[in-house]
């Protein structure tokens, strides 16, 4: 059992006197993040509703850039913000509530990187396939919308 706690978050920018204060600090931060998400979700600001970058012309360079920058080209910035904020919340839940911050580096890496690689792989494959099926459904070869 790790009795000694690391008492700083945001890379040392916010230090706490004891573990209980740190818990309330993290709660405050998570609540603010959730409130921001809810407000954005209700009002949906118009500036975040269409992608920041237009797709590049197909070709070796253009197609590679389309893949590399796909979150900025094919995704509404609002959704990108939601996903990033979710990962931020997940980080603080795992690091401070599940006290991964106080565990050894080896345990932390084993817990985090194993799922991260597997999930990234699964999501890439499923979404690429789903995008392909979406194109097929739109190509008039299949009649489904009647």
């Amino acid at each position: 059992m790790a009795h000694e706690h690391k008492l700083e978050i945001f890379r040392g920018r916010w230090k706490f006197k004891n573990n209980i204060q740190k818990i309330w600090g993290v709660l405050l931060f998570l609540t603010i993040v959730t409130a921001v998400e809810v407000v954005l979700g209700i009002y949906k600001p118009a500036m975040f509703m269409s992608p920041f970058i237009a797709p590049f012309e197909p070709g070796f360079f253009g197609s590679s850039m389309n893949v590399i920058l796909s979150p900025f080209i094919y995704m509404k910035p609002l959704n990108l913000i939601f996903i990033v904020l979710t990962l931020v919340k997940a980080y603080y839940i795992a690091w401070d509530f599940m006290h991964l911050r106080d565990e050894t580096k080896g345990l932390r890496r084993a817990i985090v990187w194993t799922p991260v690689f597997l999930i990234a792989y699964l999501v890439f494959i499923l979404l690429a396939e789903a995008g392909y099926i979406y194109d097929i459904l739109g190509s008039e070869f299949v009649k489904w919308n009647f």
């Binding site: 597997l118 999930i119 699964l122 999501v123 979404l127 396939e129 789903a130 979406y134």
Partner: peptide, 14 residues
């Protein structure tokens, strides 16, 4: 993750 990824699959499809 499997569940949420398959949800995303259905969502991307439609």
């Amino acid at each position: 993750s499997g569940f949420i990824a398959s949800y995303s699959f259905a969502r991307f499809k439609f």
